[in-house]
C-alpha cells in the first residue's frame, strides 16, 4: 500500500472540505473493499478521509412506512437489529448473508452501495425495495443510483449519509452465493407492495437492475410458475469464470422463483 495522509473528520462539512482540498482523496468506511484495492495498488489515494467519526451517518430509524439506515451502519448491525428484523426482515436477512462474520463487523451499507460491485447484495435491496440514497446535498432514487460496473450517480466528493427503504407488505431475497467469497453470482429480491411488485436483481449484469419482464407477469399473477415463461435476455450480462451470461440469466429465474415461494409463505 502506498503512503497517504489519514484524516478523521468529525462532521460532513469537514469531510467535504478535506476532500476539496486534497489532491486525489478517497473516503474510507469499513475498508473491506478499499483497503484490499489499495494493497493491490489499484487505488492510490493521496488522502484517505475516514468517515467513522461522523455522527450524522449512524443510527437506524423505523417509522410506519420506511426504514432509514445510516450509511456507516455495519452489516452485522443491520442483521442483528431487532427494529429492522421487525419492520423489514428481508433487509436483516440479506445483510446476514454478506461475506463472513468478520467482514460483516466492519463493512458498511454506505460503502457497499457506493462501491456498486456487480455482485454485492445491498444493491438488490436498494433497487428491489425502491430505496432512496441520501447524500449531503441531495436524494437519489434507487432506480437511478446504479449506473454501471462500479459506477453510481455519486459526484466526486459526494457522501452517502443514509438510505431509506420503503416497507413493503412482504418481501424475500434469495441469492446463489459464490462458494468461496459468498458474493452473489445472482441475487433476486422481490417486494410486494400490495398491488405492485418490484424485482431487484444483483450479480447478473454490470450493476443492479429491475427485472421488468418478471415484474410484469407477477403483477398479473403472483405465482412462481408465472416466471417460467419470461424471457430474461442475457445481453450485457457478466460472463466470467464463475458463471456464463447464459447461466446467470437462467439463475435470475431460479432465484426469482425461490424468492417468490419464500415471499408467499410470509
Amino acid at each position: 500500500m502506498y503512503q497517504f495522509n489519514y484524516h478523521k473528520p468529525a462532521s460532513l462539512d469537514e469531510a467535504v472540505a478535506l476532500f476539496r482540498e486534497a489532491d486525489d482523496p478517497m473516503y474510507l468506511s469499513g475498508g473491506m473493499t478499499l483497503l484490499a484495492t489499495m494493497k493491490q495498488r489499484l487505488a492510490a489515494p493521496t488522502d484517505l478521509i475516514d468517515l467513522a467519526g461522523i455522527a450524522e451517518m449512524t443510527g437506524v430509524q423505523v417509522n410506519a412506512d420506511a426504514v432509514r439506515v445510516g450509511a456507516f451502519t455495519t452489516h452485522n448491525v443491520v442483521a442483528g437489529s431487532a427494529e429492522i428484523q421487525q419492520a423489514l426482515p428481508v433487509l436483516s436477512q440479506l445483510a446476514g448473508l454478506i461475506g463472513d462474520n468478520q467482514v460483516r463487523n466492519r463493512g458498511t451499507i454506505g460503502g457497499s452501495v457506493a462501491n456498486s460491485d456487480p455482485s454485492a447484495d445491498y444493491p438488490a435491496a436498494v433497487v428491489g425495495l425502491g430505496g432512496t440514497v441520501h447524500t449531503q446535498q441531495r436524494s437519489i432514487s434507487g432506480d437511478e443510483f446504479f449506473q454501471d460496473l462500479f459506477e453510481t450517480a455519486l459526484q466526486p466528493g459526494e457522501i452517502i449519509t443514509h438510505i431509506d427503504f420503503p416497507i413493503p407488505k412482504r418481501a424475500a431475497y434469495r441469492k446463489f452465493p459464490n462458494p468461496a467469497s459468498r458474493y452473489a453470482v445472482v441475487g433476486v429480491l422481490i417486494a410486494d407492495f400490495g398491488g405492485s411488485v418490484r424485482v431487484g436483481v444483483t450479480g447478473a449484469g454490470p450493476c443492479a437492475f429491475r427485472a421488468s419482464g418478471i415484474e410484469e407477469v407477477l403483477n398479473e399473477h403472483l405465482d412462481p410458475s408465472a416466471i417460467n415463461g419470461v424471457e430474461v435476455p442475457d445481453a450485457g450480462f457478466n460472463n466470467d469464470l464463475h458463471a456464463s451470461a447464459e447461466y446467470r440469466a437462467h439463475l435470475v429465474k431460479v432465484m426469482a422463483r425461490r424468492a417468490l415461494s419464500d415471499l408467499l409463505k410470509t
Binding site: Y6, K8, L28, G31, M32, L35, A36, K39, L48, D50, A52, N76, D100, N101, Q102, V103, N105, R106
Partner: peptide, 29 residues
C-alpha cells in the same frame, strides 16, 4: 493471506471479531 480471506489475523475490536490484516491501525484509535 493478507486479503481478508483466511481469518488467521482475527482479533476482537471492542468485543467483535475483525480481520486485523484488513484494517488500518489508525482505524483502531
Amino acid at each position: 493471506c493478507d486479503t481478508t480471506q483466511c481469518g488467521a489475523c482475527t482479533v476482537h475490536l471492542d468485543g467483535r471479531a475483525v480481520k486485523a490484516c484488513s484494517m488500518l491501525a489508525a482505524q483502531a484509535e
